[in-house]
Amino acid sequence: MVARGGHSVAGSSFDRRHTRGRELAALRIRRLERGAAFKYALLLPAVLWVVAFTFFPLISVIHYSFANYVLGEGITGYVGFANYADVLTSEQFWHSIWVTVIYVAVAVPIELVLGFLAAWLVNLGAPGSRAFRTIIGSPLFTLEVAIGYLGVTFFSVQGGLIAVPLGALGIDIPWMSTAWGGIAASILLDVWRWTSFIFIIVLAGLAGISSDLYDAAVLDAKSHWQVMWSLAIPLSWPVITIAVLLRTVECLKVFAIPFALTTGGPGTSTQPFSAMDYLTTIQFFDFGKGSAMGIVFLIMVSAVITLFFKQMRKSLA
């Protein structure tokens, strides 16, 4: 140890006291570390976060789901399972679930295939890859609601950028005036928005595969397609699975694009679950029915995600 002025003070009483102090402090920390309190103290922020933002809202939603709620008056009484019965016998509810399922079942696979192919081509170093990488990412930074409103200008027969040229070619698609047209238009916009998400994740996965493996595979394989099927897909499967899981969870919450594009119509034919729950709970302040709706959907989604995880574990085993 070097004191001020460069004189050694090793062996001085100050140094001994100082060393002893540090040892005691270290001992206390070790004791604390061994003690439960310290562990709990470290966990506390995370626990508080979960209690405040997950546990409390969930309990609150369960509580509301048994109540009759009126704007301006609050809870006016408790109705048992009446809100659940109302939800489970509602045609509109089941239709909104059906719309959501179609949305996920069509949009996610398309995004997966397109995102993977784009990532594969970029990973191969296809010409223009660098520019493509930038361009494909841009929709991801655009607000979904803006994309939905933009869609009106694409699919309207009054000067729509997509509808009018198609109409001129004799392909007259009733994008906005039919259920299937509205869902198809929403899915197209969703694919445009979210393919880049899959692309980015899969590209990272493909980039993680050793170039030695690629070189060996290219020597053995007859084509790039064979390399893709027999090497790239199996080795990036864990990453693909995560991408699909994240995208599926996100897609189950689909709201802004279809709502901005068709406002759920005609009727409620293009209304996904989130839009119905939003209208019930937020627009009309029916917290009781809206909460029951949310709980039913949560149970359904949890079941699907659990199955998904089981399947994922099997495929990775």
Partner: peptide
């Protein structure tokens, strides 16, 4: 929504 559903043929 119900009138719109009629207009939409549903």
């Amino acid at each position: 929504v119900n009138v719109s559903a009629v207009l939409g043929g549903q």
